[in-house]
């Protein structure tokens, strides 16, 4: 059984030389886009370098790289889906809306962060929290929309806030 110590640049380099083509092929198979596969493969190795001084012993480099790449790919799709959903929301506005590419990027990025932060919450809890904080709805209106009691809404708000309080500060939107 061989262990490899990470992440010295040289060990990442060794991994890169050994597994880069394989990783690219895997990502290409999953995404159907060579360019995206190349970007994500690159990001995967960059990730390794940025792990700082944490020495990680890995037994199965391909499983390990695959896991990171999978996570990156999932994030990519998630962001893409949010971007498209946001785009459609804009298109559906009765009046045309002009938004600069920068602003749009920031909004999508913010939505993506909100999504990640609240992903573990039950859908209704997340919905209640966002309706209250972002849309400024009162509990009574949220209760009506979710078809629950106001007391339940209050309970949802408590759960969501507690979740955010426990999350790492840099995860906040």
């Amino acid at each position: 059984m061989t262990f490899q110590a990470l992440p010295s640049a040289s060990s990442v380099e060794a991994l890169y030389l050994q597994h880069h083509r394989w990783l690219h092929a895997v990502l290409y198979r999953r995404s159907g886009c060579s360019e995206l596969a190349a970007d994500l493969a690159h990001d995967t190795f960059t990730r390794l370098l940025h792990r700082g001084d944490n020495v990680v012993a890995i037994r199965e480099p391909r499983a390990f790289l695959g896991r990171i790449a999978n996570g990156l790919l999932a994030n990519h799709w998630r962001r893409k889906a949010i971007e498209q959903a946001y785009q459609e929301t804009l298109l559906a506005q009765p009046e045309p809306v002009a938004i600069s590419p920068e602003t749009r990027y920031l909004i999508v990025e913010t939505l993506y962060r909100v999504d990640r932060l609240l992903a573990d919450l039950k859908p209704k809890v997340r919905k209640a929290f966002l309706l209250s904080r972002l849309d400024g709805l009162r509990y009574v209106e949220i209760a009506r929309r979710l078809q629950v009691s106001e007391r339940t809404v209050r309970n949802y708000m408590e759960q969501a806030m507690f979740h955010c309080l426990k999350a790492a500060p840099d995860l906040l939107p």
Binding site: I82, A85, Y86, T89, L111, P123, K127, R133, L134, P173
Partner: peptide, 14 residues
Amino acid sequence: AVPVKSADSILSAA
């Protein structure tokens, strides 16, 4: 500070 309304709908749609 999040400048988006209906965020939940957008995220659910996504």
